[in-house]
Design a protein around this nucleic acid. Structure first.
Lengths: 332, 332
DNA sequence: TTGTATGCGTTATCAA
DNA sequence: TTGATAACGCATACAA
């Protein structure tokens, strides 16, 4: 580890005082041309790099923002991380990612490691207690994606899973499907609950009776889709469409159908939720609900930067879009 | 932003000197039981959190490591990031991710933002100039994945793309394929070049003539697979297998075949490279070469921590494994 | 065993 | 316009 050149050394080299160098660097005050040149020359000569840590100490800023994600390897959250990166591009801020694994305990310890070293926080999903969130929001700027921060609704980006699911169901009804199976997400996951509710309400609104055998529970992973279809098939219940609570489970469902020679969409229509990156290139391309995670990540990061700068922010989440592709088909 | 409690305040509360508190926190010296209790009590009461920034300034450590990735949203690199996270779990270190977008210019500016705020660096792939890498390695501990650091081979994790591709080709030969198309990766990408070389060498070793029409170039994205197959089909060249230089392009190729009603693997065998997470649940599950990115990420992070601690590290990359699934089939 | 004083690299305050 | 000087929060050499 080579020692870094300091501001004081630059000042000595240029024959000025440290404060002058600092002023030039931050552009806060007027400096004579002569000294400015001398300093710039010295900076170049010594290859001086300002020490961000020291700057942070005196200014009370760390120039980094924390991002609490649930699964850094999930293609879904990932897209949001990319959006965060993008928003930070060109600023002096860097993102620090920590992973909560959908476990409130893990989330807390992860946040613990972030305390004191970030100027703000982006919380993506998770199961952190509401009062923890409130307490956190009192100590630093926070933007949440997919969660409401109590008394700070303007700092949350919440997507309407319920209505998107209703739209999705309506689309299946339009195609003539009445026997629609649902592979639900985890019972304790807010989004999954909303999607399940909307599924049930949609059936009710369409005057279709709810066949319990059409409902299986999953955990949002591919394997759950695989198992879900197996369960469905074993129960010998009739269905013409499957609504998986997320794309990953739809992939698993697709594979189970493929293995049994059941064609999609000819024999069974399949829909997911999320519009993961690969869904567009799935075979067949998957009909799903697009969650604009990339955009959300960008908005969150931009909002957070504004918040850190003391500006007023008023976030508004975009609407969820139904993406119709080739995995669904009109029933005959 | 609530003001944080400082060590000095804890000292006042406990009626001791700041140094005593510091000693207790770091456990560097003996302190009497009475004072220790008083201090611990004060810490709890004031809910004191040490300021990592200040600690970093005086100790010359930042307690964070930088990770230069090429595409944070790619499922491939992502898996490595997860491994990094895992290795850092339980330590006081947090990872700071920056994105190079496969562009050496972007990589440099990304690294620029990391300078001075990380204690070490993990470089994943990329096209950074060799001497930049060397210079970097002189200023701080560095571990590279998929790149050689000049004169620091022990700090690199390099996978043998060439031999893995040869194994893959041999497997296709075994199945009776002789007309094997290749959708290559970007011409300037080292891994892609190796895979292409191995493809050509394998054909030569098997005494098969190289039909130029069987070779198309892609950019590692799904769309390239789609276009690649279209090109192949238009040229009316005969082939029984397609080797895509990565899984993403294999997905695109699969879709193109699906759209034309060409069955995989019945009519065409398809292989990829990477073993992305979704490949296992692809329809049909994709035969590919497994790159243990997760493991590599973990090893890199563990190695870097050791390096930072002044230990000697000698990294050795695991072998690439051929993963045979259902997208390949014996030719008749 | 404990406390005082100093320094880490920078910005900010105050005189000059 | 410039330069001392004092913070920022912590660790540590040194003195007691």
């Amino acid at each position: 580890m080579k020692r870094m050149v300091t501001l004081v050394e630059v000042a000595q080299e240029a024959g000025v005082s440290p404060s002058t160098v600092s002023r030039i660097l931050s552009g806060t005050a007027n400096v004579s041309q002569r000294k400015r040149h001398a300093v710039e020359e010295a900076i170049r000569k010594l290859n001086y790099q300002p020490n961000i840590i020291a700057k942070g100490l005196v200014r009370g800023l760390t120039m980094s923002i924390g991002v609490l994600t649930q699964d850094i390897s999930s293609p879904f959250y990932n897209d949001a991380l990319l959006g965060v990166q993008e928003a930070l591009q060109g600023t002096d801020y860097v993102p620090v990612f920590v992973d909560g694994h959908w476990d409130s305990k893990d989330e807390e310890t992860a946040l613990q490691r972030l305390m004191g070293r970030v100027d703000g926080l982006i919380i993506m999903g998770g199961s952190l207690a509401e009062d923890t969130l409130t307490r956190l929001a009192e100590s630093m700027p926070i933007i949440a994606i997919g969660r409401k921060i109590p008394e700070r609704e303007n700092h949350s980006l919440i997507l309407d899973n319920y209505w998107a699911t209703r739209k999705l169901m309506d689309y299946l009804f339009e195609l003539g499907h009445t026997r629609i199976a649902h592979i639900a997400g985890p019972k304790d996951h807010p989004d999954a609950i909303e999607r399940l509710h909307a599924y049930k309400d949609a059936l009710e609104a369409a005057n279709l009776d709810q066949d319990e055998r059409l409902l299986v529970e999953g955990d949002y992973h591919e394997s759950a889709g695989l198992i879900g279809v197996a369960t469905l098939l074993e129960s010998r219940v009739m269905f013409t469409a499957i609504f998986a609570a997320n794309d990953q489970m739809a992939y698993g469902a697709r594979l189970a159908l493929y293995r049994r020679g059941i064609r999609v969409p000819e024999e069974v229509s399949l829909v997911g939720f999320d519009d993961s990156k690969t869904s567009e290139y799935f075979s067949p391309p998957l009909t799903t609900v697009r969650q604009p995670m990339h955009e959300l990540g960008r908005q969150a990061a931009e909002g957070l930067l504004a918040l850190i700068n003391g500006e007023d922010v008023h976030l508004e989440a975009p609407e969820l879009q139904l993406v119709i592709r080739e995995s669904t088909r009109r029933i005959r």
